[in-house]
Amino acid sequence: MATGGRRGAAAAPLLVAVAALLLGAAGHLYPGEVCPGMDIRNNLTRLHELENCSVIEGHLQILLMFKTRPEDFRDLSFPKLIMITDYLLLFRVYGLESLKDLFPNLTVIRGSRLFFNYALVIFEMVHLKELGLYNLMNITRGSVRIEKNNELCYLATIDWSRILDSVEDNYIVLNKDDNEECGDICPGTAKGKTNCPATVINGQFVERCWTHSHCQKVCPTICKSHGCTAEGLCCHSECLGNCSQPDDPTKCVACRNFYLDGRCVETCPPPYYHFQDWRCVNFSFCQDLHHKCKNSRRQGCHQYVIHNNKCIPECPSGYTMNSSNLLCTPCLGPCPKVCHLLEGEKTIDSVTSAQELRGCTVINGSLIINIRGGNNLAAELEANLGLIEEISGYLKIRRSYALVSLSFFRKLRLIRGETLEIGNYSFYALDNQNLRQLWDWSKHNLTITQGKLFFHYNPKLCLSEIHKMEEVSGTKGRQERNDIALKTNGDQASCENELLKFSYIRTSFDKI
């Protein structure tokens, strides 16, 4: 039985969820670079991206490699990797027998973001014989899940209580170790020597080791999670996991709180800001991140802002960003909400898709409305799209047979046209069989910064309504002859009103 693990408890099935942008060198404390989270699957090609990484700022997932063999891993080693800020997950990587050479110096898994409450997941690794993470000293947050690894031993010899604050939620089941077939031998045991430290858990006094050649490092209890030197002297209180010299914040392997210019500090002093819960960055760093993602459509890219001495992905609820200094300031009234469309555009074809934009005031991208039916549609669209004030790209209304009016965009005031449909149009209306009105132009103002209007096959939309939009939106004169079809717009509506004058002759039985 794995020490510190839980057996036999019912657990939810383990679901495996399925960018080499360097964020800056980590400095003297770390020998390499800070790398983003990685999802490495199918083959070993991307694994080489770990070569210079000291910190993975995010998670590391290595999974679904069915053609790899043990010899493929023999020359692979990433000794610079010290810390993973989120979680480490391995799933069905064939041929991998140990992690001792792959990650010989991995010391800390912070667990800032977890995989279903777990910071370390080893699942269905069919050839893994031992973990071998002999320098792993601290899992700051989260638990361990090690399950269905039929060859995995050296679990009962690990004292997880020396690595985690609590072992109650560890789930370590259905491994070879369960069948008591392992016969784990710690260093020196074969020669009758006791080389590794022994600890007591559940009444068992057991030597602690990761492999037959690597003991588990056990520091004096007084050192807590700070770690200790090879001689057993406690590291500085700002260290986490390990250090090369005692009581020196510049000799830590990793930091308990924050890293700044080669030393570990309790908090980031001005003019620095907390970033990702582990390091200090200056304003320029946060500003660069903001600008890199301002026009990016890459998933996970955030326009970072500053709030409460932190550089964070977005302002919290009730705050909006001051564009001059990136500071989050309290909103006066309802907060603006910028919604970034991942692929640059979004099609609204149902109430469900409209709900995804609920509360958005600025759309960074283009909207395509293609709704053919739905219950209580006008009210639903207004509830979900009615706060949109600005669209950076274009607005396209296409084959939306259920629409009679666009009044559900009740606050839309600006279409920038930074991206144009077919390279020309910022407003595009095609084949809307029941569209009769755009907006009530006596109450609604709309500016279209650039781009043209396109109207074709809107049989109940009168040309007068379209011409009014040209005047109000500032697009009059931009359109070419064929942009607004004269014969297919309003051709099934009563669009022309003329005053009919009647004269009559009164007659009676005795007068003409």
Rank of each mutant, 00 (worst) to 15 (best):
H28R: 04
H28G: 02
L29V: 04
L29A: 15
E33C: 06
M38D: 15
D39Q: 15
D39W: 04
I40V: 13
N43H: 06
L44A: 11
T45M: 08
H48Y: 04
H48Q: 12
H48F: 07
E49M: 06
L50D: 00
L50I: 09
N52I: 02
C53R: 00
I56A: 00
E57L: 06
H59Y: 04
L60R: 00
L60Y: 00
Q61N: 07
I62E: 01
I62M: 15
I62H: 01
I62Q: 00
L64R: 12
L64K: 08
M65W: 01
M65G: 04
F66V: 11
K67Q: 01
P70H: 13
D72V: 15
D72C: 08
R74L: 02
L76C: 15
K80L: 10
L81D: 00
M83W: 02
T85P: 00
L90N: 00
R92A: 07
L96K: 01
L96R: 00
L99W: 00
L99D: 00
D101N: 08
N105Y: 06
L106Q: 00
T107S: 11
T107H: 13
T107G: 05
V108G: 02
I109D: 00
R113G: 12
L114G: 03
F116N: 10
F116M: 11
N117T: 05
N117Y: 10
V121T: 09
V121N: 04
I122K: 00
M125R: 00
E130P: 01
L131M: 05
G132P: 00
L136D: 00
M137C: 15
M137F: 08
I139Y: 01
S143E: 07
R145S: 07
I146F: 04
E147R: 01
K148I: 00
N149L: 00
N150F: 05
E151V: 10
E151R: 05
L152I: 08
L152M: 04
Y154S: 11
L155S: 10
L155Q: 07
L155G: 05
A156Q: 08
T157M: 08
T157F: 03
I158A: 08
D159S: 06
D159T: 11
W160E: 00
W160I: 01
S161R: 06
I163L: 14
I163G: 01
L164M: 09
L164E: 01
D165L: 13
S166H: 03
E168R: 07
K176G: 14
D177Q: 11
D178A: 13
D178S: 07
D178Q: 08
D184G: 13
D184W: 11
D184V: 10
I185L: 11
I185Q: 11
A190Q: 04
N195R: 08
C196R: 10
P197E: 06
A198C: 13
A198F: 13
T199G: 11
T199Q: 09
G203L: 13
Q204C: 00
F205H: 07
F205A: 02
F205Q: 14
V206H: 04
R208P: 09
C209L: 02
S213Q: 06
C215A: 06
Q216T: 06
Q216W: 10
K217D: 05
K217A: 05
V218N: 09
C219V: 03
P220M: 03
I222L: 09
K224F: 04
S225R: 09
S225W: 11
S225L: 09
H226P: 08
T229I: 08
T229A: 09
G232L: 04
C235V: 00
C235K: 03
C235R: 00
S237E: 11
S237Y: 08
S237K: 04
C239Y: 00
G241Y: 04
C243L: 00
C243F: 01
C243W: 00
Q245K: 10
Q245W: 03
P246T: 03
D247L: 10
P249F: 02
K251M: 10
C252S: 01
V253Y: 11
A254S: 10
R256I: 06
R256M: 14
N257D: 04
D261E: 13
G262A: 04
G262D: 14
R263M: 02
C264L: 00
V265H: 01
V265Q: 14
P269H: 11
P270Q: 09
P270E: 07
P270Y: 10
Y273L: 09
Y273G: 01
F275Q: 01
F275K: 02
Q276N: 03
Q276V: 12
D277K: 14
C280G: 00
C280H: 00
C280D: 00
F285P: 01
F285R: 03
D288H: 09
L289D: 08
H290D: 03
H291R: 09
K292P: 04
N295H: 15
N295W: 14
R298N: 06
G300R: 07
G300P: 12
C301R: 03
H302W: 14
Q303P: 11
Q303G: 12
Y304V: 11
V305S: 08
H307T: 04
N308M: 04
N309F: 13
K310R: 07
K310Y: 11
P313V: 04
P313A: 04
P316V: 05
G318F: 05
G318S: 12
Y319Q: 15
T320L: 06
T320P: 03
M321S: 13
M321P: 15
N322S: 15
N322G: 07
C328M: 01
C328R: 01
L332C: 03
C335A: 07
P336R: 06
